[in-house]
């Protein structure tokens, strides 16, 4: 069970969290202006990196906030967590 540092509550056990997929995919402000291709890409196309991945988590059984985390998918180490709306932090290699 991972330890995930919630940006609001601090380090908490994984069982309090739910996973929310890739981060930084904004819902288009005017979906009807999008082509089918663009809408398809928004709906379905996701990265599947080996290594760093910025992803959404929710501290659902804690403060209930959504936030973002940078996780190394090879090691499950969480390199950073940050609030919704903040840019992905730069993390030295």
């Amino acid at each position: 069970m991972l330890i995930i540092p919630c940006p609001y509550c601090g380090e908490r056990p994984e069982l309090e969290f739910s996973y929310g997929g890739q981060a930084h995919i904004d819902r288009p402000l005017a979906p009807s202006d999008l082509s089918d291709e663009e809408w398809n890409s928004y709906l379905y196309v996701r990265a599947n990196p080996k290594g760093r991945h910025a992803e959404r988590w929710r501290h659902i059984h804690g403060c209930a906030r959504f936030f973002n985390a940078v996780r190394d998918t090879r090691t499950d180490h969480i390199l950073a967590t940050y609030k919704v709306g903040e840019p992905e932090p730069e993390i030295p290699a």
Partner: peptide, 13 residues
């Protein structure tokens, strides 16, 4: 409820 919170917190704040 989770989906509502998702939109409110991350898209329509």
């Amino acid at each position: 409820l989770g989906m509502m919170e998702d939109y409110l917190q991350t898209e329509w704040s």
